[in-house]
Simulated assay, not measured.
Amino acid sequence: MTKRIFLVIIMMISTLGIFSFKNNATDVKTSFASFYHDKFNGRKTASGEIFSNKELTAANRTLPFGTQVKITNLISGKSVVVRVNDRGPYHSSRAFDLTKAAFSSIGDTRRGTIAIEYEVMD
Results as ranks from 00 to 15, higher is better:
98 L>I: 10
81 V>A: 03
9 I>C: 13
119 E>Q: 14
27 D>H: 09
14 S>P: 05
93 S>W: 07
60 N>R: 00
120 V>F: 07
120 V>Q: 00
73 N>T: 08
37 H>Q: 12
14 S>N: 11
60 N>P: 02
109 T>K: 08
115 A>T: 11
26 T>K: 15
62 T>M: 12
65 F>E: 02
28 V>I: 15
42 G>A: 06
38 D>R: 13
42 G>F: 04
35 F>H: 15
78 K>L: 04
85 N>P: 02
42 G>D: 00
50 I>C: 01
3 K>M: 10
1 M>Q: 10
87 R>K: 11
59 A>D: 08
102 A>T: 05
119 E>G: 02
72 T>H: 03
95 A>F: 00
12 M>Y: 09
62 T>D: 13
30 T>R: 13
77 G>C: 05
30 T>I: 12
78 K>M: 03
21 F>R: 13
82 V>A: 08
90 Y>S: 10
17 G>W: 07
119 E>N: 09
8 V>F: 09
79 S>R: 01
111 R>H: 11
88 G>D: 06
53 N>W: 06
100 K>I: 11
77 G>W: 04
1 M>E: 08
102 A>L: 00
109 T>H: 01
4 R>C: 07
69 V>E: 01
36 Y>S: 03
35 F>R: 03
73 N>R: 05
15 T>W: 04
67 T>W: 04
11 M>T: 15
85 N>L: 09
107 G>S: 15
86 D>W: 06
11 M>C: 15
102 A>S: 09
70 K>Y: 05
95 A>T: 02
28 V>L: 12
106 I>E: 00
13 I>A: 13
61 R>F: 00
111 R>F: 11
18 I>T: 11
1 M>T: 09
78 K>Q: 09
62 T>G: 10
16 L>H: 08
95 A>M: 05
31 S>R: 04
74 L>F: 01
36 Y>C: 03
75 I>S: 14
84 V>M: 10
75 I>N: 15
54 K>F: 07
39 K>V: 12
25 A>S: 14
69 V>P: 02
42 G>W: 03
34 S>R: 03
24 N>P: 07
34 S>H: 01
31 S>K: 03
21 F>I: 15
103 F>P: 05
